[in-house]
Amino acid sequence: MTPTRWWLVRHAPVINPAKVIYGQHDIDCDVDDPVVFGAVAEALPAGALWLQSPLGRTRKTAAAIRAAGCSGEEPIDEPRLMEQHFGDWQGQVRAEILARQPEAYRRFWLAPAEQRAPNGESFVDVVARVRAALDDWSARAEGRDVVAVMHGGPIRAALSIALDLSPARALSFHTETVSVTRIDRYADGAWGVGFVNATPGRPTTAG
């Protein structure tokens, strides 16, 4: 069986000198590294279906990869691939939130899978909406390559689904900016994982 091959790309590094919590808060990113974007463009398949979170940093990242020479269909905005919503804390400086709401802040970051920020969503909620997006688009694009430019949280959610991990365990994954993760969805609903957190155009550390 030919699987639907998902190429999950995390957005470029954010520009965040104030150290705010951003989540779904729109924040700019740095795409001024032609070597990295050229290498990612070369690593991705030609002629793929492209999806992107509708936030500015993912759109900008997708545009930079495509400008570096990666062909494919015009990207489609998919809101279910957005970063976790941190509610009232979005756009606020981390240190200030900790000073104002120390217990709520610590409780959220120490047990983040089930906890919600005030008026926000939990990582469990993110897993549910990412699952719906993966199921939907895997059926629509059966047997094709799908490039999805998204965020660290939803990529961890996708790995939770593909590896059948609890949301809490999936939060252990680290996702570099402009990294590529490959997961495969088969017609019978089974998943495979090709690789995680590949960083084309950057040196690897031998160990």
Rank of each mutant, 00 (worst) to 15 (best):
Q92R: 15
V93Q: 11
V93P: 03
V93W: 05
A95N: 11
A95C: 05
E96K: 14
E96I: 12
I97P: 03
I97R: 11
A99D: 07
R100P: 02
R100L: 10
Q101E: 15
P102C: 09
P102I: 14
P102A: 09
A104R: 07
R106D: 13
R107M: 10
R107T: 14
F108G: 04
F108E: 02
L110P: 01
P112S: 08
P112N: 06
P112Y: 00
P112K: 03
A113F: 00
A113Y: 00
Q115V: 12
R116G: 02
R116S: 10
E121M: 07
E121A: 10
F123E: 00
F123K: 05
V124D: 01
V126E: 00
V126Y: 00
V127P: 00
V127D: 00
A128Q: 10
A128H: 05
R129Y: 01
V130K: 06
V130D: 00
V130A: 06
A132Y: 03
A133R: 08
A133C: 13
L134H: 05
D136F: 12
W137C: 04
W137P: 00
S138A: 14
S138P: 02
S138K: 08
A139P: 02
A139R: 14
R140T: 08
R140W: 12
A141Y: 13
E142G: 14
G143Q: 10
G143L: 12
R144Y: 08
R144A: 14
R144Q: 15
D145P: 04
D145C: 08
D145Y: 09
V146A: 08
V146M: 10
V146I: 15
V146H: 07
V146E: 04
V147G: 03
V147L: 09
V147D: 01
A148S: 06
M150S: 14
H151G: 02
G152R: 06
G152C: 07
G152H: 03
G153L: 03
R156W: 02
A157K: 08
A158E: 01
A158S: 09
L159F: 07
I161D: 01
A162N: 05
A162Q: 05
L163W: 06
L163R: 13
L163D: 01
D164K: 14
D164C: 13
L165N: 07
L165A: 10
A168G: 11
A168R: 11
L171H: 03
S172Q: 13
S172I: 06
F173E: 02
F173T: 10
F173P: 00
H174A: 15
T175Y: 10
T175V: 14
T175R: 11
E176V: 08
E176I: 06
V178Q: 03
S179Y: 05
S179R: 05
V180Q: 03
V180H: 04
V180I: 15
T181H: 06
R182V: 13
R182P: 01
R182D: 01
D184Y: 09
D184V: 06
R185Y: 10
R185S: 06
Y186Q: 11
A187Y: 03
A187C: 09
A187S: 15
A187M: 05
A190L: 13
A190Q: 14
W191D: 04
G192N: 09
G192M: 09
V193T: 15
V193F: 08
V193R: 09
G194V: 09
G194A: 07
V196R: 10
V196L: 10
V196F: 09
N197M: 11
T199D: 04
T199C: 15
G201K: 08
R202D: 01
R202E: 05
